[in-house]
Computed example of a mutant assay.
Amino acid sequence: MHLLQSGVDLAVIALWLGHESIQTTNIYITADLASKEKALERLDPVPGRFSRYRPTDRLMAFLATL
């Protein structure tokens, strides 16, 4: 995952690991929460679809007390 975050192409990583197929390398790739967040931020909202839920500060403060 660190190689991907550093910008190394997945095909290059697969070659370094000696994998015959990129699909084999995909098995070992798990995106961390920060990577998922960045990917979602780059997407344009789809018209007619629900937008991403954003909790209010009041709700977050309440949840922090639990």
Rank of each mutant, 00 (worst) to 15 (best):
E20R: 12
F50R: 08
V46P: 15
L3F: 10
V8Q: 06
I13G: 06
Q5L: 07
L3K: 06
P45M: 03
L3T: 02
I29G: 00
G48P: 14
E20S: 10
L63R: 03
D44Y: 01
V46C: 04
S21C: 08
A64Y: 08
L63C: 10
K38V: 07
I22R: 11
E20C: 06
K38S: 06
D32N: 12
V46R: 02
A34N: 04
A39G: 09
I27Q: 10
R49Y: 13
S51D: 15
S51I: 09
T56C: 03
T65R: 10
L15S: 07
K36C: 15
D44P: 15
Q5T: 03
T30P: 00
W16I: 12
K36Q: 12
D32T: 08
D57W: 11
V46F: 07
Y53Q: 02
A31L: 08
E20I: 05
L66K: 05
E41W: 09
Q5G: 12
T25P: 03
Y53M: 03
T65C: 10
D44E: 14
R42I: 10
Y53V: 09
E41C: 04
A14N: 05
L59W: 15
A39P: 01
I29F: 00
L59M: 14
H19E: 14
Q5C: 05
R58T: 00
R54I: 13
E20Y: 11
D44G: 08
H19N: 08
H19V: 08
G18C: 11
A64V: 02
S21P: 03
L66E: 03
M1N: 02
T24S: 12
P55W: 01
T56W: 00
V12S: 09
I29S: 00
T65K: 13
I22C: 07
D57N: 12
T24F: 08
G7P: 06
S21I: 08
L17N: 11
L15I: 01
H2F: 13
V8E: 03
W16A: 14
L63P: 00
F62C: 09
F62G: 06
A14L: 09
P45E: 04
L40M: 12
I29A: 00
A11Y: 05
D32W: 02
L59R: 05
L40F: 07
P55G: 04
H19K: 07
A39D: 03
L10Q: 04
Y53W: 13
D57Q: 12
H19L: 07
V12A: 06
P55E: 01
T65G: 11
L3I: 00
L43K: 05
G18V: 04
L17F: 09
T56Y: 00
S35H: 08
L63H: 03
R54Y: 15
S6R: 02
Q23H: 12
S35D: 06
I29Y: 00
T24C: 13
S35Y: 10
A31N: 05
S6Y: 03
L40E: 12
R54C: 15
A64L: 06
L33Y: 06
I29T: 07
G48K: 11
R58S: 00
N26L: 14
L4H: 01
F62K: 09
H19W: 14
A34Q: 10
P47N: 03
T56A: 04
Y53E: 12
S21L: 12
R52H: 14
S35R: 04
E41S: 06
L63N: 08
L15Y: 02
K36T: 13
L66V: 14
T25V: 13
A31H: 11
R54L: 15
K36N: 11
H2Q: 09
S35V: 07
L4R: 02
M1W: 04
I13P: 15
L15P: 00
